[in-house]
Design a protein around this nucleic acid. Structure first.
Ligand SMILES: [Zn+2]
Length: 661
DNA sequence: GCAAGGTC
């Protein structure tokens, strides 16, 4: 039931936030309209109705065809089947809006929250009289403070958000359609292809990494290894410095065999191993990936379920901080009554009941770090429970005590030659937080009792050869980390966008490693050549700069979008005159067109029956064999044999090497 | 149908 008397309508971003806002006003009624909750409350005698969105209720939509430069905001439920559930939220808002005195946008205080609330209000009756609530934390005090200090709508934030949506839409839709169109043109086939500001640089990262591996030619390096025995323990210590030339290393080893080794200096220092801050989403994704093998997307989904079950706080946060408004003691007491109560006993033993949360560096405009609530209901499915336990352990560890380790450094020196080597040992003397969060491997061994000047028993001196390694492939987790460090995507989207690359069949899994497919490689080539800007992380950085300029009033979305349209139009021109060429390339990658294959692989032959990569490999092998000969003095056939045997030798290099045997 | 961004 809605009152006849006009009331203030507060719009929250999501149901959980709406409820907290209602609770802050003290007495409130929870109502429901077609299964969507809303609340009635009052403040200083004024009636308030609180309704909620469910994230974005509007999305950009444009005509079909290519290129497309015009788009408009439409209800998401109309333009996206998967978003049909948003209709009921919109219906409720329409239902209560008629009698609204004015609207308050109380969505998350970030750029998207500003847009979500703005669009709803603007579509209802325009933004005149509308207000913005700047809630920094969903606590009673903070909510009431924000409501007592209603601000005008933050229109420059809104405008920045609109620019972000439009720029991404223009690039994403146009370049995706260009790719699909080119394939259709040459093969008549329809296939879903895509490109975008976040996914394309990520794809290129995977492709480039794989190419580096394919073309890796390992080179040898040499070290002199000294095996020493001290107090009955044997250590392998490499001599400082490496050699590129084998004979030099061998000569040195011979000289040292006639030398005497003694302890020059021993030092021990006690250092602190600082307890970790509580989780933000990416740290949780990285740890759950490392410990349980969960994909980033899976972690985000599991965390969302825990959040909706009321077991943890909001998970899509970048913050590693717990503000003083979070009642830590109450939460710890709650945890002590649940299945992980024994961890609280451990915590109390370590802290004597004094909890100081270690605050991390990273912050979030709308949410604190992830923490468990004081509630624990029924049994959880296995994977959810694993994640829950990890979150609890991390939260409790963050308020426990630092660990202490003793580091010992034993500097050894050869009497005659003066050459040095050193042994590093460490012992954990106080485990501290490691008892609660035992997932971090810390070296822990007894220190040595040695005196300076003491002679050391040398058990052997030898030359070890090591080959340079190719860079590692990405896993979903390490790729996520790369995206975050490159400032690509958000908490909610990174994991999802990695999955998109799989859906498009641009990449596939090989064990836990991500490898590009032939299609992924040609798409990367085409994007790099014809839509270069879109494949560069710099595009995101530049855009962020422009969004900031909008927020500070130096420009506006209209200007920024116009500039982008013009830029894209130029790319479209180049695309149009290369459409067949591009289409053929992709269609070959898809196996839709016949072509002359490389002698060794499935890529197109360019010269002498070889693809560009194998041509490149030929050059590398020529240079590499020379370098090996200089370094090792090996005859040519031994070099080739060594390359053929090494697991570090790249696939394409190996193809060429095998031919030489 | 395609983006990236919210949230379910
Ligand atoms: Zn080839």
């Amino acid at each position: 039931m809605v009152d006849k008397k006009p009331y203030v309508v507060i719009i929250a971003e999501k149901p959980k936030a709406g409820k907290k806002i209602a609770e802050a006003f003290g007495k409130y009624f929870q109502l429901s309209y077609r299964n969507v909750k809303y609340w009635k409350a009052s403040f200083n005698g004024e009636q308030i109705v609180i309704v909620t969105a469910a994230g974005h209720l509007y999305g950009l939509h444009g005509a079909s065809g290519f290129p497309v430069y015009d788009m408009s905001w439409e209800p998401l439920w109309k333009i996206d089947k998967k978003a049909y559930y948003t209709k009921k939220y919109m219906d409720l808002i329409n239902y209560v809006a008629g009698n609204a005195k004015f609207f308050v946008n109380a969505c998350d205080y970030d750029i998207e929250g500003s847009v979500i609330g703005y669009l709803i209000i603007d579509k209802l009756r325009g933004i005149a009289n509308a207000k913005r609530m700047k809630i920094n934390a969903l606590t009673k005090e903070e909510i009431l403070r924000a409501y007592s200090n209603l601000q005008p709508l933050d229109l420059t934030m809104v405008d920045a958000g609109i620019a972000r949506h439009k720029v991404d839409w223009l690039w994403g839709i146009n370049v995706s359609r260009a790719l699909m169109l080119s394939v259709k043109k040459v093969s008549g086939k329809r296939v879903i292809l895509s490109a975008g500001r976040v996914q394309s640089p990520t794809l290129l990262q995977v492709v480039n990494r794989e190419m580096e591996r394919y073309l890796h030619l390992p080179l040898p390096e040499f070290k002199v290894k000294v095996k020493v025995e001290i107090k009955g323990r044997v250590f392998d210590a490499p001599l400082e410095g490496r050699f590129n030339v084998l004979s030099e290393a061998k000569e040195l080893a011979e000289r040292l065999k006639r030398d005497v080794l003694f302890v020059e200096r021993v030092s021990v220092d006690k250092t602190r191993l600082v307890r970790p801050p509580p989780f933000n989403l990416i740290d949780l994704q990285l740890e759950a990936g490392r410990l349980f093998g969960f994909s980033p997307y899976k972690v985000e989904r599991l965390a969302e379920e825990l959040y909706l079950d009321g077991l943890i706080s909001y998970p899509r946060t970048n913050s590693q901080k717990i503000p003083p408004t979070v009642n830590v003691r109450e939460i710890v007491e709650g945890v002590s009554r649940g299945p992980l109560g024994y961890l609280v006993s451990l915590l109390n033993k370590l802290t004597h009941g004094r909890y100081v949360v270690r605050q991390g560096e990273k912050d979030d405009p709308a949410h604190p770090a992830i923490y468990p609530t004081q509630y624990f209901g029924s049994r959880l499915p296995r994977d959810q429970y694993k994640l829950y336990e990890l979150i609890v352990r991390r939260f409790l560890a963050s308020m426990s005590v630092d660990a202490w380790i003793e580091r010992q450094s034993v500097a050894l020196r050869f009497k005659r030659s003066g050459l040095k080597l050193s042994l590093s040992l460490q012992e954990v003397v106080e485990k501290g937080w490691l008892e609660i969060y035992p997932y971090v491997k810390v070296k822990d061994e007894a220190l040595l009792e040695v005196k300076e000047g003491e002679e050391v028993n040398v058990k052997g001196i030898s030359v070890i050869t090591s080959l340079s390694k190719p860079p590692q492939r990405f896993s979903k987790t390490t790729l996520l980390k790369w995206m975050e460090s490159s400032n690509l995507g958000t908490e909610a989207t990174r994991g999802r966008i990695i999955e998109t690359l799989f859906e498009r069949k641009y990449v596939k899994l090989s064990g836990k490693s991500i490898v590009p497919t032939k299609l992924g490689i040609v798409i990367a080539e085409v994007l790099d050549k014809f839509f270069g800007e879109l494949t560069d992380v710099k595009m995101t950085a530049d855009m962020e700069q422009k969004l900031n300029d909008i927020i500070y009033g130096k420009t506006n979305s209209e200007e920024v979008v116009k500039e982008m349209r013009e830029k894209i139009a130029k790319y479209v021109e180049v695309f149009d005159s290369n459409k067949e060429k591009i289409g053929e390339k992709i269609a070959k990658g898809l196996g839709y067109l016949q072509y002359q294959k490389c002698k060794y692989c499935d890529f197109e032959a360019e010269n002498g029956g070889l693809c560009r990569y194998h041509l490149n490999a030929m050059e590398k092998v020529k240079e590499g064999i020379n370098e090996w000969t200089i370094r090792t003095g090996y005859p040519r056939d031994r070099v080739i044999k060594s390359l053929e045997k090494s697991k570090y030798t790249g696939k394409f290099v190996l193809d060429v090497v095998k031919e030489m045997m």
